Amino acid sequence: MGTPLGDFVRAKRDSIQPGTLGLPDRGRRRSPGLRRLDLATRAGVSVEYLTRIEQGRDRNPSVAVVNALADALSLDPAERGHLRYLAKITGGECVAHNRPAAPSREVRPSVLRTLRLLEPGLALVTNRLGDLLAHTDAFESVTSGTGLLDGDAPNLTRYVFTDPRARTFFADWEDVADEQAFDLWLGPSVENTEWFTAQLAPVAGPDFTRRLNRHVVPERGVLRLRHPAGPELRLDRETLELPADAQQLVVLLPADESTARAVDELRGHSLGRLRAIS
């Protein structure tokens, strides 16, 4: 049985063409990418040891080996961070022993007060599972009519993969889907992620499971939204981590003047309608 660490190393190895690392092309082979021998040589480990890591038979590589694999695969900083995280959870420091369950949806009062101070800006509190835990009224006005906030427990990840409206609302749906699947690896806990994945996979289908298992670190560029009222919005994202709560405070900022005007107009349509933060 594989492990997240082994799956990631194998996926990255398969995605690398030898020529990009200055290695000779050794002719046709059954699988694409870098050979185990080449990666093992670059990392300074044996082929047998690399095979055990990829197949999940060695779950506790040393920090030196993890760093050597990162160097051998020419990982960028985000990918290196992900590799270290996968080594941590594969090694058992985050192994689930409790019954999988949904995470708490409670937001600290001080975080809610901070959110209110951000009005009339676009801001929300979420977690890595995609739960939308609280938001400003302005955020609701910009997402109205999209279905994102429908129901008592809205969840961005579930919306992206199961609601057809998401493919229209997110102009770059493929990128957003990559982000949401990747973030599950950083969920509030392994237990929570197991619970959520088990709930979502049967209804989300291969679009979800393929992304979850390939460990592509997203770039997170400008967020482009197509609002039902007509305007396309281009938003920069600033994220403040709340590590004690395993939550994030996300602020969405207009990336250009036309977006700023469109957001003002959308907010104007909801003036006079009071709504407490969820």
Rank of each mutant, 00 (worst) to 15 (best):
G6H: 02
D7N: 15
G19H: 12
L21H: 10
L23D: 02
S31N: 11
R36E: 14
L37I: 15
T41F: 09
V47W: 06
L50I: 06
R57F: 08
D58N: 06
P61Y: 00
S62H: 12
A68G: 15
L69H: 00
A70T: 03
A72C: 11
D76Q: 14
E79Y: 10
H82M: 09
H82K: 04
L83N: 03
L86H: 03
K88A: 11
G91K: 05
V95N: 12
H97F: 12
H97C: 12
N98W: 09
P100Y: 08
P100V: 12
P100C: 12
P100Q: 11
A101G: 14
A102N: 09
R108A: 15
S110H: 13
V111L: 06
L112R: 05
L115Q: 03
G121I: 05
L122Q: 05
D131G: 05
A134R: 03
V142Q: 02
S144W: 08
D150L: 13
D150I: 07
P154G: 05
V160E: 00
F161C: 12
A171K: 01
D172F: 02
Q180S: 07
F182N: 05
G187A: 13
P188A: 10
V190Q: 15
E191D: 15
T193Q: 01
E194C: 09
Q199F: 10
L200H: 04
V203L: 11
A204Q: 03
G205S: 14
P206K: 08
P206V: 13
F208C: 01
F208Q: 02
R211E: 07
L212H: 02
H215P: 07
R224C: 00
R226D: 04
G230V: 09
D236A: 06
R237F: 07
E238N: 13
L240S: 15
A244V: 14
A246T: 09
V250Q: 02
V250E: 04
V251T: 11
D256I: 03
E257T: 14
S258Y: 07
A260K: 05
D264I: 10
R267S: 03
R267Q: 11
H269K: 14
R273M: 14
L274Y: 15
A276S: 08
I277R: 09
